[in-house]
Structure formats: structure tokens, C-alpha cells
Amino acid sequence: MKRDDFLKHVAWTGTGIAWSLSGTGLFSAGALAADGGISFVQISDSHIGFSHPENPDVIGTLQQTIGAINAMPVQPSFVVHTGDVTHLAKPAQFDTAKQLLGTLKAPLIVLPGEHDVIGTSDAFFAAFRRSDAPQGWFSWDQGGVHFLSLVNVFNFEIDGKLGTEQLDFVEKDLAAQKKSTPIVVFAHVPLYALFPPWGWTTEDGSRVLAALRRFNAVTVLNGHIHQIVQHTDGNIRFATAASTAYPQPAPGTADKPGPLKVPSSKLLSVLGYRSVEIARNAATIADHALQA
């Protein structure tokens, strides 16, 4: 399959563009159905500690993101941060990030990116360890949806690796779920081969994807690449999120990945957050830029 066939870039609008993740492929948008379901928000790649021309004020753009989420008329059930909370995994950067994220009205879930575990994961765990996730990965049921929060940045020499222990956990966990239960998976690095030359892949992600194939509706949400890319593979819908800090080049459009300088007046239009609503088997995603 040609890459163009399955990589689609989704444009921003000020109020967000919504596309359906329902099994039928029909466009659906609007408020959460009254008969149940769940809504949550995803933010990603805040890189607290980064201070370069691509965004000299990553604290300010995270605060702006949090302000927009807190202003949502219906608060989400939770906000998940899909990693790279900090730029260099320094305890002081985690302190700042924790303080900022602590101003969210909704409950917070944080998973690490590779920038959060440079050399050691101690500082990440000191800031964000959950008692129900001693190793970092965990699953839970909420609003009729089964959620999995995974960690694919703990390998010393390979970014984008889950490891046997976590894969065993995922397979066992999913084996206990009903085929009709909507599944939502979070991880920092994309779980499929989005662009391997830049490390935008999870080496052993295929075992997770294999375990997800039998379900009616699966949504996989990642960060890491600082831009929105959606991809469909059978019953599995993938969507990477924008950063709250700075964009990166589209896959293969530059010699290398890394912070991308856009005109200052345009920066807020490529940063933002994502709201997700899941009702029955239909997931609706809306990406919201900080500025139109």
C-alpha cells in the first residue's frame, strides 16, 4: 500500500474539525449522546523546559491549553497527557508541569514520552506514579469503554518498544473483554509504522494490533510527532495529536524531525488539544487549535 493511501493530514479550524471513527465511516459530530458514553480530552508533548525560537513560552501555551479545556461547558471525564510532559526529564521541569497540570478541573492521567525518561524514569514516577500502575501501564473501564494506557518508551536502546512483560499484560487484558466493547488505547509513540526512518513506530506494536483486531471499534491515540495524522487499519482507527509546545515537519518533508519554526503569528494555530466522545461504537474526535 502506498503511504499516501493511509496517511491523511487533517486540517485545523478554530473550533476544531471533527471526523467520525464509527464503524460505518459516517461523519458524526455534536454533543455526547444522552444515553451514556464518555467524553475525554487528550493533550500531548508539552516539553516543559524547552526554550527556543520555535516556542520561547511553552509554559504559556500549556496554560492557554488548560484554560481552554477548563472553559469547556461540559467538563471531560478525564484529561490524558500522552507524554513528553518535559523536555529533558529534569525534576524542576516535572515540578513546573505538575503545578500547571494541577490546575485542570478534570482528573488527569499522564503517560511518559521518551523525553520524560532520559537516563531514568525516577523523576517521571516521582511526579506522576499511580498506585494502580506500578510499572506505568494499566487498564480500566469507564463509561462502557475499556481503556488501556501503555508505555512504549522504557527500552534503553529503542524508542517505540513495549517489551514482553507489557505485551503479555495487554494480551491477557484484552482477552477478557467482549468483542462489542469499545476499546481506546493510549501510548506516546505511534503503535504502527507511521514513519520508521524518523523512529515514528513501535517495534513490537504488531502484537498489540493483532490483539485488537477482533473488536468492533478500536481507537488508538498517540503523541510524539507533534501533528495530527489519522490512519485506519481495519477496525482500528489511529490518531496522533498536536503538541502544546511546537510542531514538527510532516513525515519525510524535511531531512530530519525536530522542532519546526513557523511564523510566530501562526504558532497557536498548530498547537492545541483534542476532545473525544465515545457513545456506543462511535468515537467522535475534534481537534481544537489554540487559535484559528
Binding site: L88, H115, F156, P257, G258, P259
Partner: peptide
């Protein structure tokens, strides 16, 4: 523009970020 590390595969040295 991006952060990097200098990390030995045998872990004998590590610049960290």
C-alpha cells in the same frame, strides 16, 4: 535544535539530556 544524549550502550557513560 532538538535535544540529544551521548549514552554508552554499556551504560559506562551518559550525558543525559
Amino acid at each position: 535544535d532538538e535535544a540529544h544524549t551521548v549514552t554508552a550502550t554499556d551504560k559506562s557513560f551518559d550525558s543525559e539530556g
